[in-house]
Design a protein around this nucleic acid. Sequence first.
DNA 1: GGATATTGATCAGTATGCTGACTATCAGTA
DNA 2: TACTGATAGTCAGCATACTGATCAATATCC
Lengths: 154, 154
Amino acid sequence: MKDNNDMPGHLARRFQQIAVAVFLAEVADAGFDLTPVQYAALATIKANPGLDQVTLAGLIAYDRTTITGVIDRLVQKGLVERRASSRDRRARELEITDEGRRTLRKITPAVESAQRIMLGGLNAKEGEELMRLLRKAIAAGNELSRAPLRDVQV
Amino acid sequence: MKDNNDMPGHLARRFQQIAVAVFLAEVADAGFDLTPVQYAALATIKANPGLDQVTLAGLIAYDRTTITGVIDRLVQKGLVERRASSRDRRARELEITDEGRRTLRKITPAVESAQRIMLGGLNAKEGEELMRLLRKAIAAGNELSRAPLRDVQV
DNA sequence: GGATATTGATCAGTATGCTGACTATCAGTA
DNA sequence: TACTGATAGTCAGCATACTGATCAATATCC
């Protein structure tokens, strides 16, 4: 019988599981309480001020129903503002707050250290190769999930 | 600023997201309704009859609190039996049912095809290399998550 | 212009996954 | 044997993620 270690799906889950645990631990060590999803959303909102939720979802490959809850929590924490759009009354424009900006700045070293730790078992060349192969596999499978990456210009 | 595509954590999530979507789609095409977690648990119970939930959790690297719900649903579907252990009255012994065995047999082609599809963007050598690097990174980070892999003999 | 289709956001429902707590039981030891 | 610590399982609570539905608003087409 095929071993778990020969199933890319199992390996994907395990690696992700470790990645999330490392991220949360590093961020908590730095004195913050932010999940990987919340961080990605916050960073993307800062880089694209005023974007709407669907665009945000496309930029980081989340389902739009997931984004609703993530933004709820970021707003609750005072890191993001959600305003009705004037151009399209269905849409909400997202804006990072000063505290969001401050949090993002202070948390960056922990995030970078987490990325290093999760590749800790690999040397630099192997880490690069792993990322290259993941990018390639992801690009080929992009349309297979309900939340594909959408490279929109804002 | 660092791009998402340079963050192993982001790539890990994306690859896993696609892997799960592909798994569910292939399994649904074959006429079944089984999640990746449920499949892994079922296969492991079949290979280790009578094992308890903590051992199962260790073999597939799940948190024991997650396993409780997964087994609930497998029992509900009639694929697994959960009995009190005679040796240790705290523990539950898990046994696959005939229907569980039948399901596992019929679902295997879909599971294997899913593993191929999620590596669809890579050639054979690249797929092998990706799995090797994932295994290596995972081995180094095994103890960093709350649910490490435990290679127990049953 | 008006019917139709599409889109942005949300919601209900389900299934992982995690933290931390709790109960019952077991194991080791003074 | 009584005490102490560890262990198996469950639970409450929270945060992703998904499916499918609904509502309001916008686009499109005749």
